[in-house]
Design a protein around this nucleic acid. Structure first.
Ligand code: FES
Ligand code: FES
Lengths: 152, 152
DNA sequence: GCGAATGAGGACCGCTACAGTCCTGTATGT
DNA sequence: ACATACAGGACTGTAGCGGTCCTCATTCGC
């Protein structure tokens, strides 16, 4: 029902991997090998991440990427936004100039803001550190055949 | 950063419209005219909604659609799910059979569940009634030039 | 009973946006 | 100098989405 682009997902996975690899710069191809994500794509995502100040890049031999901040200081929201760009949910007010013809008359707009705030808040509260850490908070792994719907 | 499909958005708008029109059946073309959404599309969305038991349809002359339940008993989640179908955010476990090769090894999976729960909960708490009602809870209308990002 | 209105349920199709690839610089360390 | 690795594009194929249309089933008014 709600879709997060795959690239954004990659972003999070890559960030967690780099976060787990201490301070040593991780080269793109190394991360690609570790995560099994095609290398050019990894490179692309990593570049986006670094362009938005979430990663620091080091060129040259033995170069690579390191986290720009502590894991606890990086929220999932930032990662997603860096990769996907700021795309609004409803596209009513997407770029500039109301694309939506109903604009002020539509009774749902105010409510969408409320919803978006709720979601953003939920996402903001989750830091990269939370992503690495305790899987213990969650129910035991699903049975093999079980099919988990992330969002109903 | 997170996208809700346009059809799903339409679904919510249409539902609120019908909810506002009391118990009299609303024909598809009437709703289309009122909402300025192209008629065939309205028809499509409405059909999906009724197929999932959120609307009741009445055929024949003076037929149309009415809410199947009270507005307060219909959550936004249901509407979106009815139109978009249950699509998970990360597609790691999208349909059946893990499409994601990392499956159990990926440290982020547990956390995604947490995130999804948070989002689902936020959405579940909002009923159709909430969508119609008080826009008063929210800050005053934005200044003309202001550009609101729904989700950063 | 007949015909108009209205929904049901598909088939169909163009297009955008996403995912993925590649190429040509530029910087850095050995 | 050279190998390594990032930077920043351009480019492309494709799936899914948004939108349209057509044919049947049902119900009501006349
Ligand atoms: S649908 Fe665009 S403002 Fe409501
Ligand atoms: S990326 Fe698929 S389970 Fe983590």
């Amino acid at each position: 029902m709600i879709r997060l682009s795959r690239l954004a997902d990659y972003g999070v996975v890559l960030m967690t991997h780099i976060a787990g690899d201490a301070e040593r710069p991780c080269a793109a191809h190394a991360v690609a090998a570790a995560t099994r994500i095609p290398e050019p794509t990894v490179s692309k995502v990593l570049k986006a991440l670094s362009r938005h100040g979430l990663l620091e890049s080091h060129r040259g031999v033995n170069g690579g990427y390191t986290l720009a901040r502590a894991p606890s200081e990086i929220s999932v929201t930032e990662i997603i936004a860096a990769v996907d760009g700021p795309i609004a949910m409803t596209e009513c007010l997407d770029a500039d100039g109301g694309a939506c013809s109903l604009e002020t008359f539509c009774p749902t707009r105010g409510s969408w803001l409320k919803i978006n705030n709720a979601i953003r808040q939920a996402l903001d509260e989750i830091s990269l550190a939370d992503m690495i850490a305790p899987t213990l908070l969650f129910p035991p792994p699903a049975a093999p055949g079980e099919r988990r719907r992330l969002i109903s």
